[in-house]
Amino acid sequence: MAEPLTKSNTSGICVIAEVEHQTLHPVTLELLGKAVDLAKKLPGPISCLIYGHDVASLGQWALSFGAQQVLVLDHRELAAFRTDIMASVLHEAIHDLKPAVVLIGATPIGRSLAPRLAGLLETGLTADCTELDISDHGDLIQRRPAWGGNIMADIVTQNHRPQMASVRPKIFTPIPEIANPNGSIRRFALDPDLLLSGINVLSRTEEPMTTSISDASRIVVAGLGVADETGLELVHALAKRLNAAVAYTRPLIERGIGNYTHQIGLSGRTVAPDLLVACGVSGSVQFAAGMGKSKHIIAINSDPDAEIFTLAHVGVVGDCYSVIPQWIDALDQGDYHV
């Protein structure tokens, strides 16, 4: 392999694109948006690596959303998801681009690819960052809930390059589309040896679209404060009246109250609905990591000092078992359309 990547031979930010249904996954555009922001403090180009099969046309799109250079890794062998060869070709391409920072979406695919790539690059990787910034020394500050505890951590990759971070969808915002972007698109010549995979994909089927909690525009969340039968009934009734989906904090999932696809938070789903109602939820950092970008947050909690009130736009200090029925009543009596 070529010379190792160091502080002195790397610059700029590279976003690894994810292609879904022959289009760029929204998280790619969100990461490019953040890259544009970070580039104000970090010299060097914003590049985008697009890998897959028949993906060359997507390069233009990446340019329209902030990339200045696009490197396309296009090959039949890259059509289906195979971590081994994908990590190998990306490893090669990163040695070609020499970015100081590599950003990747923390989707199921990104989450299995990023650590393999970081392993090949023998560099640090911070998963599920909720904020990114550049320090005075020009290092990438990777902010995420600390390992356990109700506390946040700023993490840096001091001496290794590139500095890698993964970010969930819906954390950052894309820039408005640029009408006539200038920038370059280059095809990367792939070494056939790197395309020899130990994996042979037999079939790929899309599961019938289950309504994912991440797509819901309104969500009512049940926390430990409403984890009994009556409480859960109230939460479901409120959700029905508000036309909202029901989601849970982790302790409820651990008790088997809901399926883990309905867990919000660091180890669950990230959501950014128009309305999120948190019932009996304390508002831990891990929970907040999955819902902080919600547009309107209403929290009902009996503890006036609960952390959730620092996240909510509207906080109700009170007992869910009395506030929820009153809320439903008011909605029913006044004949409201929600």
């Binding site: 600390a146 109700n150 506390i151 993490i155 620092t310 736009h313 200090v317 009170g318």
Partner: peptide
Amino acid sequence: PTRVLRIFPPQRSTKSVVL
């Protein structure tokens, strides 16, 4: 390669309306 630079309590804005 990674170092924890600092840990801190979550800073949040308290712009909320309390009912």
